[in-house]
Design a protein around this nucleic acid. Structure first.
Lengths: 185, 185
DNA sequence: ACCTGAACACCGTTCAAGT
DNA sequence: ACCTGAACACCGTTCAAGT
């Protein structure tokens, strides 16, 4: 005789994400997730293959949320970069998970899309991919170091972010091969 | 009556690093490390506070190794970036650990030193820190995405790296405030 | 002074048994 | 058809007892 469902996959993923953000990956135990959705641990395996798959689903939902924010941000490159950074600050654990685990290529492509459109408008579709990778790499590295606390030599981080943004975006609007190097200091 | 030492802290850290690289963080169990150095798990606690502290020591030794390579690389910025990338490719797990966990600020300062010297020579000591952060962020992000396999939209990664390097290094030799934007595509 | 077996708490996962 | 208790393997860590 059928038993009524006491939870859902969506709720499981949501609670796992909540536990991740509040206590890091170690806090996402199957028992803690089960308790959060009002069920015992073995029941989770009806909806999820194992813990790794569950974390993968959290990663996917994180990617989708980021995609939504980027899409809503409009086409300005500075705006996109700022939204990206703010997302990392608001959900540091989810952000780390997203770029630590490997995500489904199609989801990632969707996340890249707003950035690609913005770079295409500046450097043309030919160079849009390289430019998007330049921007994404820099922002990812900056946010990672900011979250890890690797920026400990002092200085204003907001200013450092603006400095980087100015230089990176600026470099796209210049034909690098035509730039004559300035003298030192 | 004293018992002769059957291992050493250095050997423990070395074996932990070896296990990390060959099987990821999950392979670094206290039992596996103990077996690798010829001892039982409880004995490790004579030399290491707990597993987390052991991984911290692996991180420190990784930072020191990276510092050594960067110092030996000379002062050319492109050379430094290439050495950085190669290190990530050779020791992906150690690289990930290094930038995931938080490392002792002094060790990190030592690692930054070669980069800071190189940027100071180009933009002056005033802006050396911001410039070093720009370069390090970009390289860290690029390597992270390369290792995770996030670059799946095709294209030549060596070329993408060279593209980024050209633009980032190039942007340092230009006064961004004086650059007039080019028109789109 | 270092090493170990035994023990404990905790976790992921499986499965037979319940409804 | 979903849920659970019981069980298993495995892990980190502690500690009394060995040498």
């Amino acid at each position: 005789m059928p038993t009524p469902e006491r939870t859902s996959l969506a709720e499981i993923v949501a609670q796992a994400a909540r536990l991740l953000e509040s206590g890091g990956p170690a806090a996402v135990t199957m028992q803690a997730v089960a308790a959060a959705v009002g069920v015992k641990a073995p029941s989770l395996y009806k909806r999820v293959r194992d813990r790794e798959a569950l974390l993968g689903l959290v990663g996917i939902s994180t990617a989708d949320e980021l995609t939504r924010r980027l899409t809503d941000a409009g086409g300005d490159l500075g705006e996109l970069l700022t939204v990206f950074r703010r997302f990392g600050q608001e959900r540091p654990e989810a952000f780390r998970l997203l770029f630590a685990s490997s995500i489904d290529p199609e989801r990632l492509a969707a996340t890249s899309e707003p950035v690609l459109r913005a770079t295409a408008a500046i450097v043309g579709s030919e160079r849009a991919l390289d430019a998007a990778r330049l921007l994404t790499s820099w922002a990812l590295g900056f946010i990672t170091m900011e979250l890890t606390g690797a920026f400990r030599l002092g200085g204003d981080l907001d200013e450092a972010f603006a400095y980087g943004m100015r230089h990176i975006v600026g470099s796209l609007t210049v034909d690098q091969d035509a730039v004559r190097p300035a003298q030192g200091s």
